[in-house]
Amino acid sequence: MNIFRLAGDMVHLLSFVVLVLKINATKSCRGISLKTQELYTLVFVCRYLDLFSNFISMYNTTMKIVFLGTSFAILYLMRGHKVIKVTYDREQDTFRYLFLVLPCALLALLIHNAWTPFEVVWTFSIYLEAVAILPQLVLLQRTQNIDNLTGNYVFLLGLYRGLYILNWIYRYFTEPHYIQWIVWISGIVQTILYLDFFYYYIKSWKNNVKLALPS
């Protein structure tokens, strides 16, 4: 495992920590899209179907369990926690799941590496992850006074995918036959979706003003 991959995973993990911290410390999930969180949970469930059948390393298994566990914990906080669930911006978080899930499912049925249920579901999770941030980005644009932790959370999620691209470049040059078109193109699309956010995030950080996205 190279340094970019490890850094990517750690940043991804940190994004979960920041999100749970924000929700728990403020007892509020204001500005967080439940739709994006549900889509991420679906992504992890679909991708880690091989959790018990395909052992790669202790590291991989542990991280998969942590990602799954944290995703479900966040869903519980946002949907089931008495105090926190009333802070959810239900009226603002209006993105339709089907606009994302359906095209990704169709694409996975059409473009995949092997015609097996496991492979198609895995490919679906790759496509869905690329676009799962969209409800969150739309909600951010609608939210006035984005708090720092929410901004940092989205930044870390984008950074994670950016680091994975460096990891793929590194692997392409160091590992023979390492070519992963589906993963690479999806990962690049996923990272591009963050570029606009990055621009405003870095600008607000440099000017030392509160993050606000133009609507």
Binding site: H12, D50, N54, I56, N60, F67, N113, E175, H177
Partner: peptide, 10 residues
């Protein structure tokens, strides 16, 4: 071998 390689990322 490549099947395993493909699934070693999170």
């Amino acid at each position: 071998e490549r099947e395993d390689l493909k699934k070693d990322e999170l």
